[in-house]
Write a protein that binds this DNA or RNA. Structure first.
Length: 572
RNA sequence: GCUGCUGUGGCUCAGUGGUAGAGCACGUCCUUGGUAAGGACGGGGUCAUGGGUUCAAUCCCCAUCAGCAGCUCCA
């Protein structure tokens, strides 16, 4: 939704008022910080006992009072000493103060309440018109899990009552297209937490969609210079010692399996990279072979913490649409550019336009040399610029083994999920002694680019369900048309049509002993793109009455016309 | 993992300190009906699990497991 008010000011001021209300009601509470965020505002508080729902109601009431008082926000710049005095009883705020430069120490005051805040704010509290406190959750002070656990209260506010109402409707609708609701409802997948949370069971319809996506993915990769490989799901633990996973990635791996001799351990794979490297290292490689691009829909298992699991979007067993590119140093930019082209093609094919591209640079702990990092980071950035893709830089957020480009896509509640990732890897080539012979006969270490476009089939499918609200495009619909018979005697005609269309399309028949209205309703609920109704009239005319999902009746069609329509759909 | 909330038939949810109910779904029968729910009857739940309090617990307390929101982490 689009609103043309100054959200930053508005939501900053709202959070200021919330803090004020909390302070009035619960003077013992310590103030944290209260920024405006993309979807509203929040404020973090520290308190021994948790806020109850009743507390929140009281805070809401108090906020209304403050708004009515209509005090103006006064901005003042204080000296460090003045600020320290004012924040005497706010140790958390003092911590923030320490990090501020002189001249940056701004306070906003309205009536009796002052808060250290960068602003900006509205001119007075009365400008806040319509607000609602949404939920309460915990957060760590300064985002550090070793620090105090804060209580965060979230809220939303708008100048216009209509906007607030619309936002609340948006939240309701978001719930309705949540893949965790739609997936089971449309019989696409299920999760059985009692037998393992974070593990996905793909039902026939979901599996069909997955198969279509996989086929499309494989075909496209073969056309774009990739070769397909397949690798096992487990390997001797020594492989993971060699790759460094048992050292760096242990917390995210399922425990190893022991058998035969006590010292014989196998490890379920959390990543595919070492396997692709084993194929590469199977024999000596020449520079003439490079670039080598190997792709695999590789299923990996990662032990994710209980609290982070989330439907299909964060699971413990998933299939990455993985590929590794081995190339010479001078080809990195070119190869990454190709990956970006491929990514744009895939995301476009699935209708994604709203995504954020982030380039993450060298973190504090890293392997490789700073020069190599510089070169690789520049190559990634150049590749993005080549394709005119705007991106943000996330300083220090790269993985320890190399810089990366991530593409984040939003879910129904505008939460971002990383799908595409393109990473340069300085770690594995060294650990596995990956090399090639250059044209002068010298051993050289190739650059290893690791990339996934969907990220994982599970996550991508989850986002896709929400993106389409369950209304999959024609080519992905598990059932593209359903024939609805009016009565038993129309079954033969229905079967004839089905037989004809079955050659190229996925057609079902609803021959249940139900009225036509009911059959239509069920087909609509199941989001079948087309419905064909067959009764006495149609049997007589040799046509069908065609109906489109949501749009309704399209009129009478003969089979040829239906085929043409469907072929046009596929060509879209 | 952390904080808070939640956990009742396949699903959505009522409800009560004295061993449970609705709608949908499912089954059988009736109905052969024209563009978003035809009707009747019926089967189905040790009220997440394990302890505790109590004469008695689905309901109160504790723990565990799982789900949700957020944080941290991640594809």
């Amino acid at each position: 939704m689009e609103n043309n008010f100054d959200k930053e000011k508005y939501w900053h001021s709202s959070s200021h008022i919330m803090a004020q209300a909390v302070k009035r009601l619960f003077p013992e509470v310590l103030l944290g910080t209260g920024p405006a965020i993309e979807n509203g505002f929040y404020y973090d508080f520290y308190r021994e006992t948790p806020f109850t729902p009743d507390d929140i109601v009281a805070v809401e009431a108090e906020m209304k009072k403050i708004i009515k008082e209509n005090h103006s926000f006064e901005k003042t710049i204080l000296t460090r000493e003045e600020a320290r005095k004012l924040l005497e009883k706010e140790p958390l705020k003092l911590e923030i103060l320490k990090e501020l430069e002189d001249g940056e120490i701004t306070f906003y005051t309205n009536g009796e309440f002052s808060d250290l805040c960068a602003g900006p704010h509205l001119s007075s509290t009365g400008e806040i018109k319509h607000f609602k406190l949404l939920n309460i959750a915990a957060s760590y002070w300064r985002g550090d899990e070793k620090r105090e656990s804060m209580q965060r209260i979230y809220g939303i506010s708008f100048p216009d009552k209509k906007d607030l109402a619309e936002y609340l409707v948006f939240l309701e609708e978001a719930k309705a297209r949540d893949h965790r609701v739609l997936g089971p409802k449309l019989d696409l997948f299920s999760i059985h937490p009692e037998f393992g949370s974070g593990l996905i069971f793909w039902h026939p319809k979901g599996s069909l969609i997955r198969k279509l996506i996989e086929d499309f993915w494989k075909e496209t990769h073969l056309k774009n210079g990739y070769e397909l490989v397949n690798t096992p799901h487990i390997a001797d633990i020594s492989l993971w010692h060699k790759s460094g996973h048992t050292e760096y990635y242990r917390d995210n791996m399922f425990p190893p399996m022991q058998f035969e001799a006590k010292d014989k351990e196998f490890q379920l794979k959390p990543m595919n990279c070492p396997f692709h490297i084993l194929i590469y290292n199977n024999r000596l490689r020449s520079y003439r072979e490079l670039p080598i691009r190997w792709a695999e829909l590789g299923t990996v298992y990662r032990y994710e913490k209980q609290g982070v699991l989330h439907g299909l979007l964060r699971v413990r067993g998933f299939t990455q649409d993985d590929a590794h590119i081995f190339c010479t140093e001078d080809k990195v930019e070119e190869e990454v550019t190709k990956v970006i082209e491929l990514t744009s093609f895939f995301l476009g094919k699935f209708g994604f336009t709203d995504y954020r591209v982030v380039l993450s640079t060298r973190p504090e702990k890293y392997v490789g040399t700073p020069e190599n990092w510089e070169k690789a980071t520049a190559a990634l950035g150049n590749a993005l610029r080549n394709k005119n893709i705007s991106f943000e830089i996330d300083p220090g957020e790269g993985v320890f083994y190399g810089p990366k480009i991530d593409i984040k896509v939003k879910d129904s509640l505008n939460r971002e999920w990383q799908c595409t990732t393109i990473q340069v890897d300085f770690n594995n080539p060294e650990r596995f002694d990956v090399k090639y012979i250059d044209h002068e006969g010298n051993f050289r270490v190739p650059i290893l680019i690791h990339r996934a476009i969907f990220g994982s089939l599970e996550r991508f499918f989850g986002i896709l369900i929400e993106q389409y609200k369950g209304n999959f495009p024609f080519w992905l619909s598990p059932e593209q048309m359903r024939i609805l018979t009016i009565g038993d005697r129309h079954m033969d005609a229905a079967l004839k049509i089905k037989e004809r269309l079955d050659r190229n399309f996925r057609v079902g028949i609803d021959a249940r002993n139900e009225k036509i209205n009911r059959k239509i309703r069920d087909a609509e609920d199941e989001k079948i793109p087309y419905m064909a109704i067959i009764g006495d009239k149609e049997v007589a005319s040799g046509e069908i009455s065609l109906r489109q999902h949501v749009k309704g009746m399209l009129g009478n069609f003969n089979v040829e016309k239906v085929e043409k329509l469907f072929n046009d759909e596929l060509a879209k």
